[in-house]
Design a protein around this nucleic acid. Structure first.
Lengths: 195, 195
DNA sequence: TTATGTTGTAAGTGCTTACTTACTACACAG
DNA sequence: CTGTGTAGTAAGTAAGCACTTACAACATAA
């Protein structure tokens, strides 16, 4: 059955993210998948190949184009809020993959760079294009659109890391909608036209 | 000699950051320190104790208070630029520790949270106090000072991660002073008084 | 000279690891 | 009923791991 393969990949994603590439064992992955180690090696020739297939299997297909498309129907401030919300939700959904990305960024630099690209690079480009459209219509001030996009998403990804990856206690207390309001205020005001 | 101990700690910092806690071996650390494995175990009873001592030994003593102190003599925009530059330089200096922090944030959650606190939490508080002073003097608009501080530093730490930790090619091409100017522009304008 | 502290050398412990081989059990399609 | 594909079981391999023991070499200080 194909489901055996999927179960192994799922178990691999979990254990690689919890224990890292070296820390996760083929025995442990097999156990969590509910199969034997021998069966695991019937599907994947080496631990390394399994790891690469896990990452590739769960590489997110960026579904951000619709988000930005919808943003065009909203007022600028509401669009920023919606984009930020969608981005944070996307990061939360991909938490296991993001954990792998950070812990293996040295050993598997190229592969992890691809994970980053899949996660945020596409959104950066779309967001930059959105800003350029608004600039062209004279609705926001002129600035380097790509730099603006990384500035905006950077605030959120840093918040995500402190709160969800490192689980800093000072951030878990804070209401996310409250801090979101401040972030959006700053960026909104910072990109307004100077009247 | 005390220098043997220091050499082991230094080698431990390097190998733990390159290979992770599980991936780094006591043999490898001893070799890089230029001593034998037996000597390593004469100084540190277990690999785990060695790891904890490495992290504690290289926990940065935050030297940010002087930075914020100097900022008070500068114009707001120049102060932002100086703080951002000092923060980025601090992150670059602590690259190995930061790598450890990200790769072991699951296994050693508490210890790595302490690393984060030492790295940025102190600066967040100081920066928030600086903003509050400016707000009190009516030089910038009112906003949640702590949220503003995390927003400002978040932009920079996200840039640092993409450029130096994940080494995303798209960021290494960009001139850092150019992107810095845009970040500061956005934050400066975003926290100005609405006249 | 004698005592002490620091290091290296050599060997080995028991455990875990990724990965293999050989055989068996069972479901299902022709 | 027979062949085929998928799985489990049992056992084992060679290598690497953290960590130990015992002893010898050397410098320094009393």
């Amino acid at each position: 059955m194909e489901s055996t393969r999927v179960q192994i990949l799922q178990a691999g994603l979990e254990l690689f993210s919890e224990l890292g590439y070296v820390g996760a064992t083929t025995r442990g992955i097999a156990r969590r998948a509910g199969i034997t180690e021998v069966t695991l090696f019937r599907y994947f020739p080496t631990k390394e190949k399994l790891f690469e297939e896990v990452v590739n299997a769960y590489l997110p297909t960026p579904g951000f184009s619709e988000i930005i498309f919808k943003a065009k129907d909203l007022a600028y401030r509401d669009a920023l809020a919606m984009i930020a919300g969608a981005f944070m939700e996307g990061l939360r959904t991909e938490k296991k993959l993001i954990q792998i990305m950070y812990s293996e960024s040295q050993r598997y630099a190229d592969l992890m760079a691809r994970v980053y690209m899949a996660l945020v690079d596409n959104l950066i480009s779309l967001l930059a294009a959105y800003f350029e459209g608004l600039q062209h219509d004279g609705l926001i001030r002129k600035f380097n659109a790509r730099a603006g996009a990384t500035a905006f998403l950077g605030m959120w990804s840093a918040l995500y890391e402190a709160k969800y990856l490192l689980q800093i206690s000072g951030f878990s207390e804070i209401d996310e909608t409250e801090i979101a309001k401040e972030y959006i205020d700053i960026f909104f005001t910072g990109t307004q036209k100077t009247s």
